[in-house]
């Protein structure tokens, strides 16, 4: 198998969500090498990490995002693809650390103060990471000073705020106001079940993400 074929196969594994040889999903690829094995083989073959990242992994996740937007696939398939992508990224970690390969940018994410729900925030973090971004996850019940501290440490980052309760949307509003008061140029994305586009505009957020893919689309547009 030449390098082009290998990258194509790796890309297919990520797109279809084939994590490794032992993974039972997708049934049609049972027993075949997955993203884990193929990334190792690609590196052993001498393919540059940046090529693996751009030509196989990110290309695959773009197709996944497109299919999700067209409602051809749903959240479960996206998550399986993100898992395959992350299996592959494990092999690329040393190259990120050495600076040979760079991520698209940094994304700080957290559930706002007073809200303990983390599932939506975790899904967004997983899929954004799978799309090639470095994710700094601040957790749940994140008070504004913690967001401000993370921004001070990563001033180039884009920030995502999540809320699940109508009653914690006020916290979101306060955090957006306080972040923008100190860092007017920081881009803020808001999301979560009760949040709407109208609410995001009302509180002065830069974008509203109604699902993980729309967060990825906004982030990618910022570095395009």
């Amino acid at each position: 198998m030449d390098s082009a074929e290998l990258l194509k196969k790796l890309s297919e594994c990520v797109e279809m969500g084939k994590v490794n040889k032992d993974a039972p999903f997708p049934p049609a690829m049972k027993g075949m090498d997955g993203a884990d094995e193929l990334t190792r083989q690609a590196l052993e073959m001498g393919i540059k990490p940046i090529e693996i990242l751009n030509d196989a992994l990110i290309a695959a996740m773009e197709k996944v995002g497109e299919k999700f937007s067209q409602k051809k696939i749903f959240v479960p398939q996206m998550l399986i693809s993100a898992k395959a992508m992350n299996a592959s990224m494990e092999h690329l970690k040393p190259f990120f650390q050495s600076g040979e390969v760079k991520r698209k940018g940094k994304f700080i994410i957290g559930t706002v103060a007073g809200d303990l729900h983390d599932i939506g925030k975790n899904l967004v973090a997983m899929i954004v990471e799978g799309a090639g971004w470095e994710v700094i996850d601040l957790g749940v019940d994140v008070k504004t000073p913690k967001f401000l501290q993370a921004i001070a440490e990563h001033p180039e980052a884009i920030v995502g705020l999540s809320a699940l309760l109508t009653t914690t949307m006020q916290s979101m509003k306060n955090t957006v106001n306080e972040i923008h008061a100190q860092y007017p140029n920081i881009k803020l994305i808001v999301g979560g079940a009760p949040v709407t586009d109208a609410f995001s505009k009302e509180i002065g957020a830069n974008a509203y993400a109604h699902d993980p893919q729309s967060a990825v689309s906004y982030l990618n547009a910022q570095v395009a």
């Binding site: 959240v75 479960p76 998550l79 993100a82 898992k83 599932i119 975790n122 997983m126």
Partner: peptide, 13 residues
């Protein structure tokens, strides 16, 4: 939470 932390987003969800 354990599944999420292990990278198994679908199972966690």
């Amino acid at each position: 939470k354990k599944e999420m932390a292990a990278g198994n987003g679908l199972e966690g969800l």
